[in-house]
C-alpha cells in the first residue's frame, strides 16, 4: 500500500505532569490515496487532532510508522499543508502577506509571491481584502485567508483540523462548497478532521470513525459513493446520504455518549 499518506499502527502517548502516561491514540492504521478526500469523525477529545499532528510530523508517534508516498516520515512532513482549528494567521501581516509568506519561504521573490497571493485571494473571494489585517476580517474571511495560505504552496496532502468549527452554520456551508470547488480542480489528498458527521459525509470520499478516548482506535471505515460535484446543502437531502448517515450514526452514537460520560459533556 503506497498512498499519499499511510499511518501504520500509530500510537500516540503524552507524558503527564504527574509522571503518568496518557495514550491518546492506539494502533491507528489508515491510508489516504492520492486525490482521496478522507474525513475522520469522532467524539470530542478522541485524539483526532493528535492524529493530524502525527501526519504533519509535528508530533512523533510513540509506536508505529507514518509514511508519505511510501517513505517513512522522520521530520516535518514537507508535502503537507495544515489548516489549523485555531486562528493561525500572523496577526502582524496583512491578508496578502499572510498568503505570500508560504512562497517567500520557498525562495520565490517577494514581488512574484505577492502577485500569486493576490490571485489566490481572488480565488477564495477576498481579492479586495488584501491589505486588511486578520483582526479586521470576519471568522469566515480569516478561514478563507488560511485556506489560500496553505493551498498556495501546492501541498500534495492537505490536513484540516475542524477548520470550519467556530463558524456559523451558513458560513460553514459556504466554506464547505468553496473547499470542494478548490479541491475539484487538482484533487489533492485530504485528511479532514471534524466532529460533525453531516459535514464529513457531504465532503468526503471515505468517512473514518474513531472511538472515544483515551486510547482511541479507528472503529469504522465507510466509503461515500455520492456523485460529485456535490453541493453541501443539496446532498444532505438525498436518500443515499440519509441512509449512510443512519448507518454510521449507529456506530458513532455509542462513542459520543462514552465521550460525554468521560468529559462531563464538555
Amino acid at each position: 500500500m503506497r498512498g499519499a499518506l499511510d499511518l501504520d499502527g500509530v500510537t500516540v502517548a503524552f507524558r503527564l505532569a504527574d509522571g503518568g502516561i496518557y495514550t491518546a491514540v492506539e494502533g491507528a492504521t489508515l491510508s489516504v490515496a492520492d486525490g482521496e478526500f478522507v474525513a475522520i469523525v469522532g467524539p470530542t477529545g478522541c485524539g483526532k487532532s493528535t492524529l493530524l499532528n502525527v501526519a504533519a510530523g509535528l508530533q512523533p508517534p510513540a509506536a508505529g510508522v507514518v509514511r508519505k508516498a511510501g517513505v517513512p516520515l522522520t521530520a516535518l512532513n514537507r508535502d503537507a499543508g495544515y489548516l489549523f482549528q485555531a486562528d493561525a494567521l500572523f496577526p502582524w501581516k496583512t491578508a496578502l502577506d499572510n498568503v505570500a509568506i508560504g512562497l517567500e519561504t520557498a525562495g520565490v521573490s517577494r514581488r512574484q509571491a505577492r502577485e500569486r497571493a493576490q490571485a489566490w485571494l481572488t480565488r477564495v473571494g477576498l481579492g479586495a481584502f488584501g491589505n486588511r489585517y486578520p483582526h479586521m476580517l470576519s471568522g469566515g474571511q480569516r478561514k478563507r485567508v488560511g485556506l489560500a495560505q496553505v493551498l498556495i504552496r501546492d501541498p500534495k496532502i492537505l490536513l484540516m483540523d475542524e477548520p470550519f468549527g467556530p463558524l456559523d452554520a451558513q458560513t460553514r456551508q459556504i466554506m464547505g462548497n468553496l473547499l470542494l470547488e478548490l479541491w475539484s480542480t487538482d484533487r489533492k489528498a485530504v485528511l479532514f478532521v471534524t466532529h460533525d458527521l453531516d459535514e464529513a459525509i457531504a465532503l468526503a470520499d471515505r468517512v473514518v470513525i474513531m472511538s472515544a478516548g483515551p486510547a482511541s482506535r479507528i472503529i469504522g471505515d465507510w466509503p461515500v459513493t455520492l456523485p460529485r460535484p456535490r453541493d453541501i446543502a443539496e446532498v444532505k437531502v438525498e436518500p443515499a446520504f440519509r441512509a449512510l448517515h443512519r448507518d454510521i450514526w449507529q456506530v458513532l452514537k455509542g462513542e459520543v455518549l462514552k465521550g460525554y460520560a468521560q468529559t462531563g459533556g464538555g
Binding site: A56, G81, Y82, A88, G102
Partner: peptide, 8 residues
C-alpha cells in the same frame, strides 16, 4: 506550528 508547516 503554522509557521513551521509553511516552510520557515
Amino acid at each position: 506550528a503554522n509557521a513551521r508547516m509553511l516552510g520557515m
